[in-house]
């Protein structure tokens, strides 16, 4: 069906009446004239081109993203992403709540690594108040953040491989992730949306259940993560399909994408923090001493090597680190 032809459906009010389904904003060609230069350019079809709606609920869009594709035969010549299907206006909700409502409201923003999205309102409030977090709370934060990051990266690698057509890495990623999530659930009380950080600290000290689970996991984690990394890094199909893809060069300078590029530096800072902390106060927890070994997920290795390459040496970050004393 082309976009100009309309179906007739029975009216909801009166089933004897057939109504024409109206052109809506959800169609590939919207029911209004183009309003901007770019829109006019996109909706002007040259010879042999056509528009196709892709999504919003398509398995490969990972969520609800609609993309209007302009295709010429088999080739996609232009795209128009239509966002907003998941926009919830969290800023406004937080604005209308108290400051501690913001913690649980920001939790589901990144539901795979929600301890990080909790950190935003918490650390903003701390910065505004000029609060210094107690040393032990800082330790616990870094420990749980890093665990959450490993879980998140494992899932990311798994989904990436799934998109490339392999189911096995996803299942492997879920093995590790499930252990970590159970561990964090023992610590925070929640399995996915932890709601664990508080302004000025965390909600509760490390408990025994968490520590024993962590020790269990640590005894085997290195081998598991290495095998997971091997599964992808030594897979020729995966390497050939990902190498050289999505390179962010200087000319791109995308506001949102460059976050991914800048985050190489930021992530490295967090890991440096953990290393410095464990090195400076070895008596705090015997488990956290072993933590730097564990933060070697495939993605972290990749980021660290990129980071080291970009900076010349990794120690430079440690000295630049704001919390290094």
């Amino acid at each position: 069906m082309t976009t100009t032809e309309r179906d007739h459906v029975r009216s909801l009010d009166d089933p004897d009446i057939w109504v024409e389904t109206p052109a809506t904003i959800y169609d590939a060609v919207p029911p209004y004239p183009p309003r901007t230069e770019r829109e006019a350019e996109f909706y002007h079809l040259r010879d042999g081109e056509m528009l196709i709606n892709f999504g919003p609920q398509h398995p490969s869009t990972h969520g609800v993203l609609r993309i209007v594709l302009k295709i010429d035969g088999e080739r996609v010549v232009d795209i128009e992403p239509v966002m907003g299907y998941l926009h919830r206006g969290v800023e406004k909700i937080c604005e209308n709540g108290d400051w501690h409502h913001a913690i649980s409201n920001c939790d589901p923003l990144e539901y795979v690594a929600s301890l990080f999205s909790e950190a935003m309102p918490v650390m903003a409030a701390e910065k505004l108040l000029g609060l210094e977090v107690p040393r032990r709370a800082e330790f616990i934060r870094v420990l749980t953040w890093e665990l959450n990051r490993i879980a998140s990266h494992g899932l990311f690698m798994g989904w990436l491989a799934l998109d490339l057509g392999g189911l096995t890495p996803l299942l492997y990623g879920f093995i590790e992730r499930d252990k970590i999530v159970e561990m964090l659930a023992a610590q925070t009380g929640q399995r996915l949306l932890f709601n664990y950080l508080r302004v000025g600290g965390v909600n509760g000290d490390l408990n025994h259940d968490f520590l024993s689970r962590l020790a269990d996991w640590m005894s085997d984690a290195g081998r598991q993560l290495d095998s997971e990394a091997k599964l992808l890094n030594e897979n020729e199909i995966f390497v050939r399909r990902t190498r050289g893809m999505g390179v962010v060069d200087r000319a791109t300078r995308s506001a949102r994408v460059c976050r991914a590029r800048c985050c190489a530096r930021l992530v490295c800072r967090t890991t440096c923090d953990a290393r410095i902390h464990t090195a400076s106060t070895p008596s705090s927890s015997s488990i956290s001493q072993r933590e730097p070994k564990a933060i070697r997920t495939p993605a972290t290795c990749y980021i660290s090597t990129r980071c080291a390459k970009a900076s010349g040496s990794s120690t430079r970050f440690c000295t630049r680190c704001p919390t290094a004393r």
Binding site: H8, I17, W18, V19, T24, I25
Partner: peptide, 11 residues
């Protein structure tokens, strides 16, 4: 209301 619903006779 985003679009006008056109009523048509039953085909």
């Amino acid at each position: 209301v985003i679009a006008r619903v056109q009523r048509k006779a039953l085909p």
